[in-house]
Write a protein that binds this DNA or RNA. Structure first.
Lengths: 137, 137
DNA sequence: TTTAATAAGACTTATTTAGTCCTATATCAA
DNA sequence: TTGATATAGGACTAAATAAGTCTTATTAAA
C-alpha cells in the first residue's frame, strides 16, 4: 500500500546508470542489468516504457542501446512514475474510465472528491522533484 | 500503484458513519457494515486497529459498539493511514528494521535517502489533511 | 445464563507485482 | 547476404500482498 513498485526503482537506477555512462555513448540493457544486479527482462520492459514516453532514446541493432533524452534536471519523479506505473492513483475511485457503477458502496464515492484533492497534491510534490535531486543529492 | 488499500477507505467510511450517528451514542460494526455495504469481518478488524491507536473508543458486551475518540478536525489522514496500513512507506529501503543487507542491489540504496525525503513530504501532506476536510468538504 | 457485542488468530481466495520465456525485428560488420 | 547482438513486445508463471472468511474466546447487559 502506497508503495512504489520495483519498476520505478529500476527506472531510477537505469537513469542513474545512463547519466553516469553518458560519455561512452549509448548503454545496453545488459550493461545496466549486470552493473546494478537488476533482472534483465524486467529492466528491458522498463526501458521500453521510458522510450515510449520519450524519456530515453533507444537504438536497435547490434550496436544499439539507450541514452537519456533530457538532462536530469529537466526530468521529474512524476515523469518516471507515470511512465512506469500503469495506473497511479491513491484510490480507484477517480481512475481513468471508472464510473459511478464501479463503486459498490452505498453513498457512492463519498470520499472521492476530497481524496482527489490529496492526489493532486501528491502529483504536485512528484512534479517538484527532479531526477537530478534524487540521484545526486 | 501507490494506492491506498480498502482498509483505509473502510476506516474513513467508518469514521464518517460514527460522526453522523454520534447523537445516538455508540455504533456497532454491524450497523456500519450494513449501512455502507462493507464486509463485516474486515471492517471489524479495521475498527480494532483504530481502537488500538485510540482513534475510536470500543465498548464490549451486548450494548457495545464504537464511538469517535476525537473531533474530526483533530484527526488527520496520516493518523488513519498509519493506524491501518501495516508498513506504509513508498519504498522498502527505509522500512523499519531494514538493513543494508536487505538491499540486493549493487550500489546499495543509491536512491534511498532522496526518496526518504520525498516520503517525509508525503507524510507532511497527510498530516495537513484532517478527517473533517475529507469527509465534509 | 442467554444474548449480542467486540477481540483476535488462522485460514482461503483474489488481485497485483515481479520475473521469465519465447519470437520477431533492426542494424552493424565480416 | 548472413551471422551476431541489440531492442520490441506478447504470453506466461511465480511470488507477494490485499481482501475476505471462518472460528473461537471474551465481555457485559438484561
Amino acid at each position: 500500500m502506497l508503495k512504489l513498485s520495483k519498476k520505478t526503482e529500476y527506472a531510477l537506477m537505469a537513469v542513474k546508470f545512463m547519466a553516469r555512462n553518458a560519455a561512452d555513448g549509448s548503454v545496453t540493457a545488459k550493461e545496466i542489468s549486470e552493473g546494478y544486479n537488476i533482472p534483465y527482462d524486467l529492466l528491458s520492459k522498463v526501458l521500453q516504457q521510458l522510450t515510449h514516453k520519450k524519456l530515453v532514446n533507444s537504438f536497435q541493432g547490434i550496436k544499439g542501446g539507450y541514452t537519456l533524452n533530457h538532462d536530469p534536471e529537466n526530468v521529474t519523479l512524476f515523469d518516471i512514475i507515470s511512465a512506469v506505473e500503469p495506473n497511479y492513483q491513491i484510490t480507484d475511485c477517480f481512475q481513468e474510465g471508472s464510473t459511478e457503477k464501479d463503486c459498490t458502496y452505498i453513498n457512492c464515492c463519498m470520499i472521492r472528491d476530497p481524496l482527489a484533492k490529496v492526489q493532486k497534491e501528491i502529483d504536485k510534490l512528484f512534479k517538484a522533484v527532479t531526477i537530478q535531486q534524487i540521484l545526486w543529492p
